[in-house]
Amino acid sequence: MTVTTPGGNSNPEPFFYVNAPWVTSVSPAAGQFVGGGSVTITGLNLATVQAVDFGSNAGTITGVSDTTVTVTVPRADSVGTVPVTVIQSPGGNTDMPSAYTCLAGPGI
């Protein structure tokens, strides 16, 4: 990349395009709402993932490759389905977040 101004041109610098992350599956797709379980997210362009959100709560990334991200699921705000959003910088977020269902524990 070179910047051109009326005063001249800058030195050329490399510029890299980064593809946005693409998620194809979340496995398992459900778990206890108290969190703590491990989830594997499969897709493309995942090597530079910065965070994975389950609804409004951030998971803890424990492993990353270009095609998988392993995450410890955080405690959910409530029982039900929440979006899973893969956040990458630069490159953006997943356009279509996947879902994870937070299940209630067994009753006593």
Rank of each mutant, 00 (worst) to 15 (best):
F15N: 12
F15M: 13
F15R: 12
F16E: 11
F16A: 08
F16P: 00
V18D: 05
N19G: 02
N19C: 03
A20F: 00
P21S: 08
P21V: 07
P21Q: 11
V23G: 09
S25V: 08
V26C: 07
V26G: 04
V26F: 02
V26Q: 03
S27L: 09
S27P: 03
S27T: 13
S27W: 03
P28G: 04
P28Y: 02
P28L: 02
P28R: 02
A29K: 10
A29H: 06
A29R: 08
A29V: 07
A29L: 07
A30L: 04
A30E: 12
A30Y: 05
G31H: 01
Q32A: 15
Q32C: 13
Q32R: 15
Q32E: 15
F33C: 01
V34K: 11
V34N: 11
V34A: 12
V34M: 10
G35N: 01
G35Y: 00
G35H: 00
G35I: 00
G35P: 02
G37Q: 08
G37S: 05
S38H: 10
T40E: 03
I41K: 02
I41P: 04
I41E: 04
T42W: 13
T42G: 13
T42P: 13
T42M: 12
L44N: 09
N45K: 06
N45L: 05
N45D: 14
L46Q: 01
L46D: 00
L46C: 01
L46H: 01
L46G: 01
A47V: 05
A47K: 04
A47G: 05
A47C: 00
A47T: 02
A47M: 03
A47L: 06
T48C: 01
T48N: 12
V49T: 15
V49S: 05
V49E: 03
V49A: 10
Q50S: 13
Q50A: 14
Q50P: 02
A51K: 13
A51M: 09
A51V: 02
A51I: 04
A51S: 14
V52N: 06
V52E: 08
D53A: 08
F54P: 04
G55H: 08
G55R: 06
G55I: 08
N57E: 15
N57F: 12
N57Q: 15
A58S: 14
A58I: 02
G59Y: 00
T60I: 09
T60D: 03
I61P: 01
I61A: 01
I61G: 00
G63F: 15
G63S: 15
V64K: 12
S65Y: 00
D66C: 04
T67Y: 01
T68N: 11
T68M: 10
T68Y: 09
V69C: 07
V69H: 06
V69D: 07
V69N: 05
V69L: 07
T70K: 13
T70I: 14
T70C: 04
V71I: 11
V71E: 10
T72M: 06
V73K: 03
V73H: 04
R75G: 11
R75L: 13
R75Y: 09
R75S: 13
A76Y: 09
D77T: 09
S78A: 13
S78D: 09
G80A: 08
G80F: 06
G80C: 06
T81Q: 07
T81V: 12
V82Q: 13
V82L: 12
P83V: 07
V84M: 07
V84G: 07
T85Q: 09
T85S: 09
T85N: 06
